[in-house]
Design a protein around this nucleic acid. Structure first.
Lengths: 226, 226
DNA sequence: TTAATAGTGTCTGTTAGACAGTATGGG
DNA sequence: CCCATACTGTCTAACAGACACTATTAA
């Protein structure tokens, strides 16, 4: 450990991990295991470790992994806040990220003290985590209008009706079916999973799709929105 | 000065100050006056001073003021990068901002060693400043499609033909005149400066407008783009 | 066959944009 | 008068979205 002579700035990373439960957007919270705010549910966060993390993104990935045992294919930086009051320990900077995963990724983890909170219901969170959640939701809803972002809330394969329900749940408004399909086609991010179809239901089976490889970690964009 | 025992992270802020010179988008560079890269032209930047800056935004404002003598009404955070290699002094974080001002604000400053560089021409910049410039230009061009952002490149008052030329210069494509005016009207961010008009030219004078107070530091948005 | 949902097509109102026409200044 | 540029209106093509029609499965 090196000693440096600077005014101290605490550098932390916080992650808003979101998922869809039914048609409700949820954010994953973790019970804190140390000061400040021990035992309080909060966004998973941690201090940047220069010796361990090659980049800030790696800090965010390590936080998700160590606090929740989750690896998210999609992780995007939100905003950085820094001031003297947001952390009781003193002047601090928080670089916030958001991530999207299908519900089962969160349900499968064996990590304890994790819970999901409805982003549209009131909750009390420590630090400025409430503002981060609101930013994450706003960013997600906005980008959903013109990108493939909500696909990361679906599983590896899905049908177009399922995908439309996901878009509608995220944005909170119904979309026109044929128009929605034209727009998805226009983005060109999906490939058919040939031969397969949903089965067992008393109706016509749906074609199954998955994201093309090029769009697993990048977004497809529309010139004009949905 | 307090001594702390943490692995050191150097926290810095860099600002991409942009303006229009004719129809060319320029970024303001300042000759560095200390290590590393002394005498090299770079984005104005500085280290966060917890004792002096109440927030990160204040650091950005202080940097613009102290390096260039400029105060910008519009200042927006771009992105934060942190890794072990971008600064030769070690693991560092750079929070980047971009700002927009009319050309005369930069020309009026008496600060030395400032120059404007065409953002579309090749330039060599230290650290990862080239990436920051590219992000700033991309963000500006993108937001120009659906917001009042380019208004901050105009002076306090301007005519609609002038404003259209600014939008076209920023985005690099011509816009339809009557449609452009409908969209500007739709944003509702302008108010007429009554009685005044451009004069002296051998043609019909144009109505002069200015930004409504509510939009001097905030953006007006369009549901659909221009 | 019916019920249920998938997928496609048709039609209509709205919007983007080309272009022309009118307005208003100076010379 | 003419010229130049500001401003407005008209027309067309493209698009968003409502709605209905066809397709395909299980029972």
């Amino acid at each position: 450990m090196e000693r440096i002579e600077v005014e101290p700035v605490l550098c932390t990373v916080d992650v808003a991990l979101m998922t869809l439960k039914g048609d409700q957007l949820m954010v994953a919270l973790k019970r804190r295991d140390h000061e400040p705010y021990p035992d309080v549910f909060a966004l998973p966060g941690g201090v940047v470790r220069p010796g361990e993390d090659a980049t800030l993104e790696e800090t965010a990935e390590r936080v998700l992994q160590q606090k929740m045992g989750i690896k998210s294919p999609y992780l995007e930086q939100l905003i950085t806040k820094g001031d003297a009051v947001r952390d009781p320990r003193g002047w601090s900077m928080s670089v916030s990220y958001y991530a999207l995963v299908p519900l089962d990724v969160i349900e499968k983890t064996h990590f304890q003290d994790i819970r999901l909170a409805d982003v549209d219901k009131k909750m009390i969170l420590p630090f400025d985590h409430m503002r981060i959640v609101q930013s994450a939701v706003a960013r997600l809803r906005n980008k959903s209008q013109y990108s493939s972002l909500p696909c990361h809330l679906a599983g590896e394969t899905f049908t177009l009706p399922q995908l439309q329900k996901i878009y509608e749940a995220v944005m909170g408004v119904a979309r026109n079916k044929s128009h929605f399909r034209k727009k998805i086609e226009e983005m060109g991010m999906l490939e058919e999973v040939k031969g397969q179809s949903t089965q067992g239901a008393a109706n016509r089976p749906a074609q199954i799709y998955r994201l093309k490889k090029a769009y697993r970690e990048n977004l497809a964009m529309l010139e004009r929105g949905l």
